[in-house]
Simulated assay, not measured.
Amino acid sequence: MAATTRPSPGDALATSQPRPGLRERKKLKTRIAIRRATYRLIAEQGYEATTVEQIAEAAEVSPSTVFRYFPTKEDIVLTDDYDPIMESELRARPADEDPLESLRKVLTQSLATFIQEERDEVVQRTRLMVEVPAVRARMTETMSTTSELLVRALADRTGRDHDDLEVRVLTAAVLGALREVMLYWAARDHEDDLIELVDHGLSTIQNGLRL
């Protein structure tokens, strides 16, 4: 049977953003190659046994190139190219839509695309979040970058300042719920429907904890 080629995050990015120049496309291609090499090596020999030098060799780049794109090994596991997509989609949501509903739509649609295109990567990433404390700790740090992008987009849509407390709190609550849902999903061997779990988690923020 002939192998099929799945779309990559780069393909999704290209459909939602203006086509980048040659230099940016080369950078994206390199980032994807490094990530895929990392996940392949981790699947074969485990997280701790996988070194940056091995990753560089598998991705056919130098170790310095790996570090130029990803400051730590944890960043290779956690970084993807969906943040610009989510920011763009959030800005495109209807102006009169409830902010929490806008975030719900953007997150669930982005996750659905990610799972469809890169399910194995999502499963491996979330498993490492549960099993490797360094990955879990770094995840909390890297989420701050996503938060800043979404805060700016949400603030602009609602006519508020970028440092508005309510906007920051809402965004942080949503991303915190997403983090816990991902850990819960992985801890249960990825048996549940992730999108339904995310939707349930955001409904908890909206409705509160029912007694």
Results as ranks from 00 to 15, higher is better:
residue 187 A to E: 13
residue 126 T to K: 08
residue 189 D to P: 01
residue 142 T to V: 13
residue 138 R to H: 13
residue 183 L to P: 03
residue 88 S to V: 07
residue 173 A to Q: 15
residue 159 G to S: 06
residue 103 L to H: 01
residue 49 A to C: 04
residue 153 A to S: 07
residue 75 D to Q: 14
residue 163 D to N: 08
residue 57 E to W: 04
residue 80 D to P: 06
residue 140 T to A: 13
residue 62 S to F: 06
residue 75 D to F: 05
residue 163 D to L: 08
residue 133 P to Y: 04
residue 173 A to S: 12
residue 180 E to N: 15
residue 113 T to N: 07
residue 191 E to A: 10
residue 79 T to S: 11
residue 64 S to Q: 11
residue 190 H to E: 07
residue 188 R to D: 14
residue 69 Y to L: 06
residue 129 M to H: 10
residue 114 F to I: 13
residue 163 D to Q: 07
residue 86 M to G: 00
residue 123 V to N: 05
residue 112 A to P: 02
residue 148 E to R: 10
residue 53 E to N: 05
residue 115 I to Q: 12
residue 139 M to I: 11
residue 69 Y to A: 00
residue 150 L to V: 10
residue 75 D to K: 08
residue 110 S to C: 13
residue 140 T to M: 10
residue 156 D to P: 00
residue 144 S to F: 13
residue 94 P to T: 13
residue 81 D to A: 10
residue 84 P to D: 09
residue 176 G to A: 09
residue 95 A to I: 00
residue 92 A to Q: 10
residue 101 E to Q: 14
residue 140 T to I: 08
residue 73 K to M: 05
residue 50 T to L: 04
residue 48 E to K: 12
residue 50 T to I: 06
residue 53 E to H: 06
residue 137 A to I: 07
residue 114 F to P: 03
residue 92 A to M: 05
residue 122 V to D: 02
residue 105 K to M: 13
residue 124 Q to C: 09
residue 97 E to S: 08
residue 172 A to D: 15
residue 112 A to C: 05
residue 83 D to V: 13
residue 176 G to L: 08
residue 83 D to L: 11
residue 73 K to S: 00
residue 144 S to I: 11
residue 76 I to M: 08
